[in-house]
Amino acid sequence: MAEVHHHHVHNQDPEAGAEQRKAIWKTFWILLIITSLEFLIAFTVPHGVLKVSIFIVMTIVKAFYIVGEFMHLKHETKTLIWSILVPVIFVAWLILALLLEGNAIFEAIFA
């Protein structure tokens, strides 16, 4: 334990990273407020297409902040951002295909 190799210089400046910490807490408040709004909507808006659409939009906004800020993807190179986002197209296709399939099963059995 005696020999400690420092490749980086120890940063003693207390102001260092203050901006990142501010951004982190800002993201926290955004996530908290959106989640609280979701609760409010869950008990005030009647169940239907509008309610589900609002929930989906809010979920995507939350996902954007978690992936972009917490996982830092927003600040990576463009190639990395696209390498992560493009495969999600397959997920979108899977959702569409299987929800239609589920609906077809419903029609075949109950309609």
């Binding site: 899977l94 299987l98 929800l99 589920g102 609906n103 099963i105 059995i109």
Partner: peptide, 10 residues
């Protein structure tokens, strides 16, 4: 998605 499929078929 499997959950969604089951839900839509019920």
């Amino acid at each position: 998605v499997a959950y969604g499929t089951a839900r839509f078929s019920f």
